[in-house]
């Protein structure tokens, strides 16, 4: 099966190209519809737009206040991203390089917690944060999301390849652990930190569940929550606004993706399965 012949290679190209059409068609349609007048989206789904209109894009600024959604989502996503990059790398450094007594055990415990289904936490955490008065505050999303075991796992896996001698040499020169962390570990871990940054930013940007639970006030809505609540209420003749919103909300992630493809794909699949 792995024996690669000329026919099997050409067949592979044909299959993959067919797959490409399936994968890309919804994205192409999304962009086309965002420039297509609403009535045509409803009644001529397969026709190319008779004329290109920007009314969808203009409409989302008026009817959806999309700039505010972007602002809220950016504040939340950037906060979660920065907290994770620093706190997770600190934990990974302590476990993989300082190796304090109990670090092995702690790491095993962390991996175990990954197996706990998230549904267990959702009702009690909501009850707790509701009683604390955190509902309608960004901190209800940011603080519980400030660390992540999967991220610690990815960073630890990476840091283990950084030679111990580097740290020992720095220790002999009188550097403290915080200095080693800042001056050696952080700069050397840049690739994996990029991966973690992407993963956490995207996770937060694309999340509907968290904002749905905690952000009731319309001024606090995020992009996904705003899009969901908006999409149900737009009348047909203005439906192009929903499509314009789809494009605008997806675009930031796609742009980052095209610059950092490798890190993106690694973020999901860089698990040593041995």
């Amino acid at each position: 099966m792995i024996k690669t012949t000329k026919t099997s290679t050409s067949l592979s190209y044909i299959y993959l190209t067919l797959g490409l059409i399936f994968v890309l068609y919804p994205f192409i349609l999304m962009v086309l519809n965002s420039f297509k007048p609403g009535p045509e989206i409803m009644h001529a789904p397969n026709a190319l737009p008779s004329r290109l209109t920007l009314s969808g894009y203009i409409g989302v600024f008026r009817d959806l206040n999309i700039l505010n959604l972007f602002k809220n989502s950016f504040i939340i996503a950037i906060s979660i991203m920065l907290l994770n990059v620093f706190l997770d790398s600190m934990a990974a450094f302590a476990i993989s390089k300082i190796r304090f007594p109990g670090s092995e055990l702690l790491f095993r415990f962390m991996l175990m917690t990954m197996m706990i289904p998230g549904v267990l936490f959702f009702i009690p955490t909501y009850t707790m944060l509701y009683r604390w008065g955190w509902v309608n505050h960004f901190r209800s999303l940011i603080i519980p999301g400030a660390v992540g075991v999967y991220n610690i796992f990815l960073i630890k896996q990476f840091m283990e390849h950084i030679p111990d001698q580097l740290i020992e040499a720095a220790r002999i020169d009188g550097a403290s652990y915080p200095e080693i962390y800042l001056n050696i570990m952080l700069p050397m871990s840049r690739p994996v930190l990029a991966t973690v940054a992407i993963l956490t930013f995207m996770g937060s940007w694309n999340d509907l569940f968290g904002p749905l639970l905690y952000l009731r006030d319309q001024k606090k809505w995020t992009v996904q929550l705003g899009l969901h609540l908006f999409s149900g209420g737009v009348p047909g003749h203005k439906i192009e606004e929903v499509w314009a919103a789809n494009v605008m909300i997806t675009l930031p992630i796609i742009v980052i993706y095209f610059f950092l493809q490798k890190e993106f794909i690694k973020a999901f699949t860089d698990v040593d399965l041995k």
Partner: peptide, 8 residues
């Protein structure tokens, strides 16, 4: 080491 894992 302990301080660095404390946040988690």
């Amino acid at each position: 080491g302990y301080i660095f894992v404390a946040p988690w």
